[in-house]
């Protein structure tokens, strides 16, 4: 049985498989470093290792919404390139695949790092391509080569 973690950040709902989730942290501390790529909001420290925090709210619009979220989770997710952290508000939940309904997508407009959409209790969640996002959002390719429908470096 496949299960998904469903989360929201700044009005953007996203889903990752439970297998990909390493850990969910609450009230962890974010740290800034010089010259972080525009889509990396900060780093956090987990088990003595630095983890880049991807600003997923940029997937939903031009401006980062992270500063509006005063309390939330940091979802640590495994990618081929290392662990990345995803910000989420406190509404996260874990549900079985059969409880979700696959939604039709406008593939041309919404496929940047998104490989599908779920509807769960009338709310839409984008299933993320973590490997793709981990690479694109940390290498500054993000704002240079892709039309992301609004996602831009937020300096």
């Amino acid at each position: 049985m496949i299960r998904f973690g469903l989360f929201r950040i700044g009005g953007f709902g996203f889903a990752v498989t439970l297998e990909q989730i390493k850990k969910i942290l609450q009230n962890s501390t974010d740290y800034s470093l010089p010259h972080l790529p525009g889509a990396v909001a900060a780093v956090l420290v987990d088990g003595g290792e630095l983890v880049p925090l991807l600003d997923l709210s940029l997937l939903a619009g031009a401006e980062s919404q992270l500063s509006n979220i005063t309390q939330g989770y940091r979802v640590l997710v495994k990618s081929e390139y290392g662990i990345v952290a995803l910000p989420a508000d406190l509404s996260g939940k874990i549900v079985a695949e059969e409880k979700c309904e696959l939604s039709a997508t406008n593939e041309q407009k919404m496929n940047f790092g998104i490989i599908g959409k779920f509807i769960y209790q009338s709310e839409e969640y984008s299933l993320l391509d973590i490997n793709f996002l981990a690479l694109e959002m940390t290498q500054d390719i993000w704002q240079n080569q892709f039309d992301t429908g609004g996602a831009r470096r937020h300096k």
Binding site: L33, H35, L36, P37, V40, P52, Y81, A134
Partner: peptide, 24 residues
Amino acid sequence: AIPSLLKVAAMGFYSQIQLLHNEP
């Protein structure tokens, strides 16, 4: 260690990070 995903960003500015009480 600087994560491989951030090595390009750090290049030219710093090459090492150490933790003090879990702060980089």
